[in-house]
Every structure is written in C-alpha cells, then in structure tokens.
Design a protein around this nucleic acid. Structure first.
Lengths: 171, 171
DNA sequence: AGAAATAGTACGAATCCCTGACTACCCGCT
DNA sequence: AGCGGGTAGTCAGGGATTCGTACTATTTCT
C-alpha cells in the first residue's frame, strides 16, 4: 500500500521503443480482460488458453489449425485445449471428414465467456478512444491491421522464416 | 517444408481485436530482435531477460526499481538478473547509499548488445514505416505513447489496482 | 532505543512452450 | 488390393518464466 518513490519507470515524455510500447499496451488490455473474467467467476482461464480459444472457428477447428493460427506447436495447443476441455469451455468431437482428426468446438460455457471478454475489450477500447480521439484510435487500429497482414499472415511468415537472415541489421 | 492449406489465420480484412493485433506486432518485433541477437553470437539472452535489462538505468538500478519498471515481482527480477550476471551482461555492486541494496549495472558485454538491438529495432521500424508511410507510423508511435502514459505510469497503475473493480463491463 | 518499513533472498509451485519420438489414419499410385 | 509418403494427434521430458509465502539484514521514523 505504501508507495516507493516514483522514479520507477522511464520518465513520461521520453521515447520508449515502439516494441516496449506495444508490449505495454497489450499487457494492459490482457490484464483488464483476465481481471474481469476472474471477477465474473471465470478465474480458471489463463492468457495462453485464451489465445488458443480465440482462434477456434464457430464451426469448430482442428488442433493443427489452432496451433498454426495461435503460432504454437501442436503439442502446446493440445495441452491448452486439454485444459479448456477439462474446464468445460470447449469439447472435442470426431471430425466426420477425417478419422484421424477431431474438431474442437466451443461449449456452452465457452460461449458464455465470449460476450464478457468482448465487453471488456469494448470498454477498454472506449477508454482508449476517449484518450486518443476517434480519428487517432481508428488510425491506430488500421495501422496495426496493416502490420498484422504484413507480418502475421501465412505468406508473410513463410517469407521471414525461410530467409537465410543475412542482413538483418539493415538500419 | 511441405505446406498445409492457408486456412490458418483469420481472413485478411476481417477485424481482429486491437488486443490481438498488438500482441502480433509485439511478437513480430521480438522475434526479429532475438533472432538477430542470436545470429550475432548473443544467443543466450531471452526475451524475459531483455525486458529487465531494458529498464536498467545507465548509472545502475536497484533490484526493486527494476522489478517495478518491468512489472514483475522482486523474485522474478532477481532471478532474471542472476542469469544476466552469470552470462556477463550486468554486474551487481554494493549501493554506497544503502547497505541493504545493491546496484545492478550494465557490464561491457551488456553495452555491446545495446547497439545491436537498437539497430534491429530501427530496421524493423523502417520496414513498418515503408508499409504505413511516415505519417501513419508517426501517429502510431504517438498513439501508443499516449496509451503508455495513461496505463503504464505509476499513478495510472495505482488508479487501476486500487479500484474495487465493480463496473468493469462499462461497454 | 524500539517499531515499522524496505532491500533482497530462499524455496516451492504453477504455467507456458518446445524438441523428439511415436501411433493411427488418409490418399495417390502401382 | 496394397504399399509408401504425408498428415492428425499424443506421449515423454525438459527448460523458461513467473508467482506466493516466508525469511534475514538494514534503514528510518518516533
């Protein structure tokens, strides 16, 4: 409760790298989301579980799809899906199209969580809009979207992963 | 090497939440940085170590300061600093002002890493500027800076942490 | 001097995520 | 038919990150 002097962080106004700023904003959003979820009685979901849950398509997804979309290995995805199954947020059903595969589908409990998370996100985005103004918020979203398409799209990833990485320091 | 169909991620053009976009951009930057560091012979630093290293002030920082600035517990900070000490990036020296405390200072090897990381960041930011245009990139930086000051500043944190969190879902 | 706060450490545990190795199944080709 | 390469998913094991609780040493306030 008692406070230490406020030298903690870099001085306001100084320039932290975009990298650190992105991390900070993401972390702020994440902690708001999971704080609210915890308050709402869904304290058993973790951020990692959330990141795989988020990429499950409405009609169900295969584990391999989930792993690729969430950028983790199949094992990690399987581990996290196991937890989500045990906690009742998703179910595994056989994939009628392929006996090797199973579809992971969102269970009722999972559906119940979605609007709660969406509401928090909407709330935080509203706060941010109040801080930035509608136009800058819109531009922020667009800019991030452009970067996402350039860096986090299957073709973009292939581009980076296969490059021998010779002249990374282009400066 | 062989490729799975490209259904992986959300369709380009659809709107992922700002949260996911922030995460994606941060992750892209981070993997570039640590990829390059690894190539440059500094493969023993990890992202977590980087996040504490980043907040060490030029004249040295106390562990508690580092912990607060990096938003981790003292134990975590101490653990990561231990690793950085073992790897030779920082040193611990007694704090002349307080016999309980020690100052963590950047060692020569640590100083050597800084320009490498900075170059990568500059390179990635240049790529992003090429994608977005100078103006949008500048606006992105400003917007993130505003959000940072509002959410990741000591006073801002106190504001959020102490709120009883009743009406989180303001939507 | 004595009480309260602060700097840091020790230990134990949970979470997250990866590599390597394996089984079960699908599909195209002979 | 049926074989072989590729895909879906699991098992086993390990490393990294982070936290909570509990403790010692030192400073600071009264």
């Amino acid at each position: 409760m008692t406070q230490t002097p406020d030298i903690t962080t870099t001085q306001p106004g100084s320039q932290a790298s975009v990298s650190a700023l992105l991390f900070s904003a993401y972390r702020a959003m994440e902690s708001r989301i999971f704080g609210a979820l915890s308050q709402a009685g869904y304290g058993d979901v973790t951020p990692a579980q959330g990141r795989v849950f988020r990429v499950i398509r409405p009609d169900g997804s295969r584990l391999t799809e989930i792993a690729q979309a969430a950028r983790v290995t199949k094992q990690t995805a399987g581990f996290l899906v196991d937890q989500l199954v045990r906690a009742g947020y998703v179910v595994r059903v056989p994939d009628p199209a392929d006996a090797r595969a199973r579809l992971i589908k969102i269970a009722p409990k999972g559906s119940a969580v979605i609007p709660i998370g969406a509401a928090v996100v909407a709330g935080v985005e509203a706060e941010w809009t109040a801080l930035l103004g509608k136009e800058r918020m819109q531009m922020l979203r667009e800019a991030l979207q452009v970067l996402w398409e350039a860096t986090d799209t299957p073709s973009a990833l292939r581009r980076h992963q296969e490059a021998p990485v010779d002249e990374v320091v282009v400066a």
